[in-house]
Design a protein around this nucleic acid. Structure first.
Length: 695
DNA sequence: GAGCACTGC
């Protein structure tokens, strides 16, 4: 502990914090900022210190270490709070929490008076929640100038930019404890980056001294291909010509028991080669890595507000990401990083920083959250973000909220909206719950919302045979053909009838992690609903053994209201759909859907969908059949949509005549920046695809 | 007739 670089800076840090409300601290990996800053401030103050982390595991493990260093029991002076788990007490003085939990807390107490110090750690990751918190902190220090200190800490954040955002606050640089990493570039872009990664890895294995190799690839597919090629090639090497090698894949959909294999120490005289996604960039740290091979690409989910569609694209990484990857080689001794791209590409084309999540996500939930805070004099379109989302994205969010009654025609939050904001759900689902309560089907709607909160429950597991299996799985409920929401409900009901038997999940090819997560979410949601309801709600744990009416009418009606933004109408003579309202577009039923067609092979005339995904053809994923008479009032509302009023008149917008006309692009600066990102991403993607096709 | 980066309330 004494060797942590940050310790020598204690006096300077304390003095700066005493004299300033906000301080930015740049500390590279290994500086000790996550564990030491809170302790330093704790030694000077007695009231409560909050430290946010973007990830649950980090909040838990850092809290554990600090408790150990202070020699106290975890949950007493030092504790943590993550979703479903609060290990703090009245005595807690240092509290580690995920940034999402702090946002929830600020809903109950917008001034966060419980804390005298708030530390936003890992701010460089620019998670959606961290970005919102930064905006809120800027306001909060003005409201509480005498009794609040805010520290923004980060590994590589652009200190000047953040300092400027916070009114030229001081920036302290703390050196890290990384060993030097030599960076080697390719002369040119590889024709086939999978083969190039393979050759580079073999070359290191044969020629370089011991030390593990970490290879960054984009996804499961490429990882599996590369692992199998590496296995073949390593096996073909002459025995005794070099040391042994074991090869591990590492990605998020790998079952946990296979993920942890990379933390076991390798056998003697054996090199480990780990082929990973960006999960190894921040979430998992593998010790012993000396060589990093960086493909320069990452898979990134992005939301396009003009089509309301998500896509999962392979994009070029940013300079920050490239350096983060390189740093993985220098944790235990000096290392080397092989970049499979020329240095000129890195310097000229890579973005400096990753496009922040707030510019890549649908903002309906975040905007509703901000509205519910009742910040005075706040125009949501002018909220002070470190990097603003495009105005198009904010308007999209407002329109969505209006159509589901969360805000009124003037953009003010409604009483329904206020309740919705309390629920940790996407607005479409929280609105469904509100409506389900009126229709007497809250028990079922809760289950649907919980099941949709985990996308992984139905995903096939790892084995190849399982992978080929189709949904709906033969011996699982089929949703009566009404769609995926109903199927998810029925699956959960069946699981409940087995008393949440883990074996039952495994027998039916369901992911245990996903199912237990759904159970936890359901419990949390029903607790919140009980709390915010005026009178006690009739929520049953579930209806054991009771047969439902086979058409689930009320539940589907409730879904229709919640998903007013996500309606589609089947085209006359075929099975294609057109989305209703905002810039209607042609979409297809995702082949994995449980929705079934009638005896003539036709799908239902109207459906609601959970999301649109371009892969790259546009599909609707997770569908529910609805009826035309439920849809009509929504269409009427669509036609009276007026974005000018919704945004509080604060925007210089031309009035829209109906919900389906295009919006003029305003707020040019912001849009231009976002467009620039988009076109660069697009260009990078094309290059990538071209190279991949070139095999 | 398709495809699953990573987090999180």
């Amino acid at each position: 502990m004494a060797s942590l670089p940050i310790v020598q800076y204690e006096e300077m840090i304390i003095e700066t914090v005493e004299n300033n409300s906000i301080v930015v601290i740049i500390g590279e990996t290994g500086s000790g900022k996550s564990t030491q800053l809170s302790q330093m401030l704790h030694r000077r103050r007695h009231s409560k210190i909050a430290v946010t982390q973007p990830r649950r595991v980090a909040a838990v493990s850092v809290a554990r270490r600090v408790a150990q260093e202070l020699g106290v029991q975890l949950g007493e002076e030092v504790g943590y709070a993550i979703r479903f788990e609060d290990r703090t007490s009245r005595n807690t003085r240092i509290k580690y929490l995920t940034d999402g939990v702090l946002l929830r807390e600020s809903l109950a107490d917008p001034e966060l008076n419980d804390y005298s110090v708030i530390i936003l750690d890992e701010a460089h990751e620019r998670s959606l929640n961290t970005d919102i918190l930064m905006g809120l902190m800027k306001r909060l220090v003005k409201l509480r100038p005498s009794n609040l200190k805010v520290l923004i800490t980060s590994a590589t954040l652009d200190g000047d930019k953040v300092s400027k955002f916070f009114g030229e606050c001081p920036v302290l640089n703390i050196p890290g404890k990384l060993y030097p990493v030599e960076v080697l570039y390719s002369k040119e872009c590889p024709v086939n980056y999978l083969d190039t990664a393979l050759r580079t890895a073999l070359d290191i294995h044969i020629r370089q001294p011991e030390g593990d190799i970490l290879i960054f690839m984009t996804g499961q597919d490429d990882i599996e291909k590369l692992v199998s090629k590496l296995e073949d090639e390593v096996r073909a090497l002459d025995e005794g010509s070099c040391m042994d090698a074991v090869i591990f894949p590492l990605h998020g959909s790998l079952p946990p028991e296979l993920q942890v294999r990379v933390f076991n120490p390798p056998p003697p005289n054996c090199r480990r080669i780990i082929v990973a996604t960006n999960i190894a960039e921040t979430s998992l740290t593998v010790d012993g890595v000396v060589y990093v091979i960086d493909s320069g690409y990452v898979k990134q989910r992005q939301y396009n507000p003009s089509s309301r569609m998500y896509s999962l694209d392979v994009v070029q990484i940013s300079k920050v990401q490239a350096n983060q990857r390189a740093g993985r080689a220098g944790r235990t001794r000096p290392g080397k990083c092989y970049r499979l791209y020329p240095s000129q590409l890195y310097h000229d084309e890579f973005l400096d920083v990753t496009v922040p999540e707030i510019q890549r996500s649908s903002l309906a939930g975040s905007v509703l959250y901000l509205k519910s805070l009742d910040l005075p004099d706040i125009d949501i379109l002018k909220f002070d973000f470190l990097d603003s989302p495009s105005s198009e994205s904010l308007q999209d969010a407002l329109k969505q909220l209006y159509l589901i009654d969360a805000i009124d025609e003037n953009g003010a939050i409604t009483s329904i909206g206020r309740k919705m904001a309390e629920l940790p759900l996407e607005p479409s689902l929280s609105r469904t719950l509100m409506e389900a309560n009126n229709y007497g089907c809250i028990t079922e709607a809760l289950t649907v919302a919980a099941m949709l909160s985990t996308e992984t429950a139905l995903l096939p597991g790892q084995s190849k045979t399982e992978k080929k299996r189709k949904r709906p799985l033969s011996n699982l409920p089929d949703g009566f053909g009404l769609g995926d929401h109903i199927q998810l409900l029925q699956i959960y009901e069946r699981w409940y009838q087995t008393d949440y038997d883990i074996g039952w999940c495994k027998d039916h090819g369901l992911q245990v992690r996903g199912m237990t997560f759904a159970r936890d979410v359901r419990k949390q949601l029903s607790q919140i609903l009980q709390k915010i309801a005026k009178e006690p709600l009739d929520i049953k744990t579930n209806r054991k053994g009771e047969e439902f009416r086979r058409d689930y009418r009320n539940l589907r009606k409730a879904l229709c209201v919640g998903y007013a933004n996500q309606l589609a109408e089947r085209k006359m003579h075929h099975n294609g759909y057109r989305t209703l309202g905002f810039r209607g577009q042609m979409v297809q039923v995702h082949p994995s859907s449980a929705l079934s067609s009638d005896e003539l092979g036709k799908f239902p005339d109207y459906v609601v969908y959970h999301e649109l995904i371009a892969t790259p053809r546009p599909f609707m994923r997770n569908l529910c059949s609805v009826e035309m008479k439920w849809v009509i009032p929504i269409i009427n509302k669509l036609n009276t949509l007026n974005v000018y009023k919704l945004s509080g008149g604060g925007m210089d917008l031309v009035e829209e005549e109906s919900g389906i006309s295009d919006l003029p692009k305003k707020n040019v600066e912001v849009s231009a920046a976002a467009d620039d990102n988009e076109s660069r991403i697009q260009a990078a993607r094309e290059r990538f695809l071209a190279r991949k096709a070139n095999k």
